[in-house]
C-alpha cells in the first residue's frame, strides 16, 4: 500500500500532481490488499447477480406476456368456460387494480403527507408525536392479512354498512371501499417515511428565509417545503402504490376476490365501489396452476400487465427526480 508513497520524490511542488509510474490514468486496485480485492469481487458478483435476476424476471415476463397478452383481455371480463379460449379476459381484475390503487393512494397520500409535515415541522405535542411515530412504524410491520382481519371487524359493523353489501341486516363488509381503506394503511408508512426524509433534507435556513419575508408556517410548507420534497413524496407514493397493487390478503378478505365486479344497488360509481371485485394480483394467483381458474397463459398475461404498471410508476418517479435535479438544490 505504501509502495507508491515510497517511490514518490520527496519534494512535490504543491501545484503539480504527483507523477504516476505509468504516466497515464490511475491504476485502481494495484496496491489493494487481497481481502479488499475479494470484497470488491464479491460486490461485483452480487451486483451482477441482482441485475441478472431482475433482467431474467423482466425478460421472462416480457416473452410470456407478449406471447399470451391480447389487448382484448383488458376489456373482456372473465367468464366461466372449459378452455382458456372460452374464459374471457381479466378486465374486471384490471380495473379493480386501478380502482384500489387510485382510492388507496388518495387516502394514504394526503394523510401521510399531513402526518409527515406535522412530525417534521411541528412535532407538538411532543408525546403525541412520538406515539404517532411508533404507531406508524408498527403499522408498517403488521402483515396485511392481520390488517384485513381487523378490517372485517370494522367494515362489518352496521354503522359502516352503507359501504358494502347489506342483506337482511347482515353487513358483508367486502367492498372496494373497505379494501381501499385498509390498503391505504399498507401504503401510509411508506408515504410518511419518504415525505419525512424529504422534509428533513431541507436546510433549516431555507424555512427561516421564508419566515423572514413574513410567510407563515403553513404558507412555507405549502409553497416551499412540499414542492422541494416532491421527489421523495413521489417515491413514497410509488412504493405505496406498489404495495397496494401487490397485496393479495386484503383483496381476498375485504374485496371478496370475485373474478367479476359484483355491483350493489345505487348510483353508478357507488354501486361498483360498494360491491366486491378483484385485482390483477389475485387474478394471477387464481389463474396460476395452483389457483381455482388454472389458466397459466392468462396468469402470465396478467402478470405482464402488473409488471408494466410497476415499470410505468418507476418511470414516472424517475421523471420527477430528474426534474428536481435539473432545478438544483442548496449547497450545504
Amino acid at each position: 500500500m505504501d509502495s507508491s508513497l515510497a517511490t514518490r520524490p520527496a519534494e512535490i511542488p504543491p501545484t503539480q500532481s504527483p507523477p504516476r509510474p505509468d504516466g497515464g490514468r490511475p491504476r485502481s486496485g494495484v496496491t489493494w490488499h487481497l481481502s479488499d480485492r475479494i470484497g470488491l469481487a464479491l460486490c461485483w458478483a452480487l451486483g451482477l447477480l441482482f441485475c441478472a435476476i431482475a433482467v431474467a424476471i423482466v425478460a421472462y415476463l416480457l416473452v410470456q406476456g407478449i406471447k399470451y397478452l391480447r389487448p382484448s383481455m383488458l376489456v373482456t371480463p372473465a367468464s366461466a368456460g372449459f378452455s382458456q379460449s372460452e374464459t374471457g379476459g381479466f378486465s374486471d381484475a384490471f380495473f379493480g387494480t386501478l380502482i384500489v390503487a387510485v382510492m388507496g393512494i388518495s387516502i394514504a397520500l394526503p394523510i401521510g403527507i399531513g402526518v409527515a409535515v406535522w412530525l417534521v415541522e411541528y412535532g407538538r405535542p411532543t408525546a403525541l408525536a412520538r406515539v404517532t411515530e411508533s404507531t406508524i412504524e408498527a403499522i408498517a410491520g403488521i402483515p396485511s392479512i392481520v390488517l384485513a382481519l381487523f378490517g372485517t371487524v370494522i367494515f362489518s359493523s352496521t354503522t359502516l354498512g352503507f359501504l358494502s353489501r347489506t342483506s337482511e341486516g347482515i353487513v358483508f363488509g367486502r367492498s372496494f371501499f373497505a379494501a381501499s381503506a385498509m390498503l391505504s394503511l399498507v401504503a401510509l408508512p411508506l408515504v410518511v417515511a419518504s415525505t419525512r426524509e424529504g422534509l428533513s433534507a431541507i436546510p433549516q435556513h431555507v424555512r427561516e428565509a421564508s419566515y423572514a419575508v413574513g410567510k407563515t408556517k403553513i404558507a412555507t410548507t405549502r409553497r416551499i417545503l412540499l414542492p422541494a420534497s416532491r421527489p421523495q413524496v413521489a417515491t413514497g407514493a410509488m412504493l405505496g402504490l406498489g404495495r397496494i397493487i401487490g397485496d393479495t390478503a386484503i383483496i381476498v378478505v375485504l374485496l371478496g376476490a370475485t373474478q367479476n365486479f359484483a355491483p350493489v344497488g345505487g348510483a353508478f360509481p357507488l354501486n361498483y365501489l360498494r360491491g366486491a371485485g378483484t385485482t390483477l394480483t389475485n387474478f394471477v394467483y387464481e389463474a396460476s396452476p395452483t389457483g381455482n381458474l388454472d389458466q397459466p397463459q392468462k396468469a402470465y398475461a396478467a402478470a405482464f400487465v402488473l409488471l408494466l404498471m410497476v415499470l410505468a410508476l418507476n418511470a414516472a418517479v424517475d421523471i420527477v427526480h430528474r426534474r428536481a435535479r435539473k432545478a438544483g438544490t442548496w449547497s450545504s
Binding site: P203, H205, E208, A212, G214, K215, T216, I224, A228, S331
Partner: peptide
Amino acid sequence: EPTLLRRRVTMVFQQPNPFPM
C-alpha cells in the same frame, strides 16, 4: 404581528437560499 414585522425587517442569510422555483 410577526409576519408583518418580518416584512418590514427582512433578512438575508449566510448560505444563499433561493427557493426551489
